[in-house]
Simulated assay, not measured.
Amino acid sequence: MKSFLSIFLFFFIANTFAQEQFVVYFNSDKFELTKSENKKLNEWMNLHIKDKIVAINGYTDEDGTSGYNDTLSKKRVNYVFDIIKEKVPFREDFESRSYGENFNQSKNKAENRKVTIYYIEEKDLARENEILGIKEEIVVAVDSTSEVIEETISDDAPLEERIAKTKEGKTLILKDINFYHNTFGVMSESRPTLYDLVYIMGTNPRLVIQVQGHVCCNTDVTDSRSIMLSRERAKAVKLFLVAKGIPAARVSFQGFGSSMPLYPIPEQNEEERIANRRVEILIVKK
């Protein structure tokens, strides 16, 4: 038998204990710290050089467009990360999140323009896996050549983890990617997943993907309109990534219409239709 540690941090920020937080604040529309906040951050670093950082989250107030705030919150995360990356240890499965204005905001706008660092103190590092809810799993060898059963990837795991665990040549579903009815217009609720994908591709420059579009409800798999719609939806995802700085050569796209349903067509209910009407990514190269 062989054992390994699952890196899935199940609701680690909200639900774990003995995990500490440190917050720095920003002026409106700025991603650089003021002198006083920068001093506060440096003082914190000097006191915590033997602790371990788990995550860094960025936030903004509601002023400005959602897209602008998503970008601003990410810049704030990157600014703080660049200052502390070689001064305080990070977990190997460290995560960063950029929430823009999409979080439970304070009525005081100044309190919303922030970056929060989540970390574990040196005295608790012996228990860090327990604190983060990381459980030991067992992988059983299936024959004498030590081949092991392929690890199951939870659909509820963060996208970054799902991509990390997906092998080249395999596909995974991009959750919560939705389009306006019978169009390739991406709905605003898709933005968090798309920005997650931008971040993942930006921090993994070797990653090459193909975006694959699928539609539901059409028994004629040769219908050119369905194929074109699925292709344009996949293309819309690529264009979003390219617009955010991802090289076009690292993202291709393809539409399969209704030829590859997860559930038989006609579907029996809306849940099956939603499952068939999906966007997937093929991991071409890692």
Rank of each mutant, 00 (worst) to 15 (best):
R233E: 03
E137K: 14
G202T: 05
Q105S: 09
H48C: 05
Y59I: 07
N112S: 03
E150F: 04
V251K: 01
I265G: 05
A249W: 08
G100I: 01
E43D: 15
N57W: 03
N15H: 11
I120N: 02
R250N: 09
E147F: 10
R231N: 13
R225K: 11
V211W: 00
E62H: 09
I274A: 12
K52P: 01
N27Y: 10
I138W: 12
R278I: 09
Y79D: 06
E271N: 13
N269V: 12
G133V: 07
K74D: 11
Y25G: 03
T222P: 00
R162H: 08
N276F: 04
G202L: 09
K35S: 12
Y118Q: 04
K286Y: 10
L172W: 04
S190Q: 09
N102S: 12
I265F: 05
V142H: 01
A110Q: 13
K165T: 04
D93H: 11
L241H: 03
L172E: 01
L132G: 02
R127V: 02
F253R: 01
F22K: 07
R91P: 01
I49A: 09
A126Q: 02
K30P: 06
I138K: 15
V251L: 02
N42G: 05
R250K: 15
D124C: 08
K114D: 01
D29P: 03
E270S: 10
V77N: 04
G67V: 01
E270A: 11
I84H: 06
S252N: 12
F10A: 05
K30N: 15
M228F: 13
V54Y: 00
D176P: 00
V148F: 02
K114M: 08
N42M: 13
T71N: 10
I53Q: 04
M187L: 13
Y119M: 04
A249S: 13
S98K: 06
Q212A: 08
K238R: 15
R191C: 00
I84D: 05
V80I: 15
D63W: 09
T152F: 06
V54S: 04
Y263G: 00
Y79E: 08
K109S: 13
V211E: 01
E43L: 14
S28A: 14
I83L: 14
R225F: 10
E161D: 14
Y199Q: 14
I227S: 01
C217F: 04
S188W: 02
S224Y: 07
Y180Q: 14
Q254L: 12
K244A: 06
S224K: 13
K235F: 10
Q268L: 14
D155T: 06
I281A: 02
L207F: 11
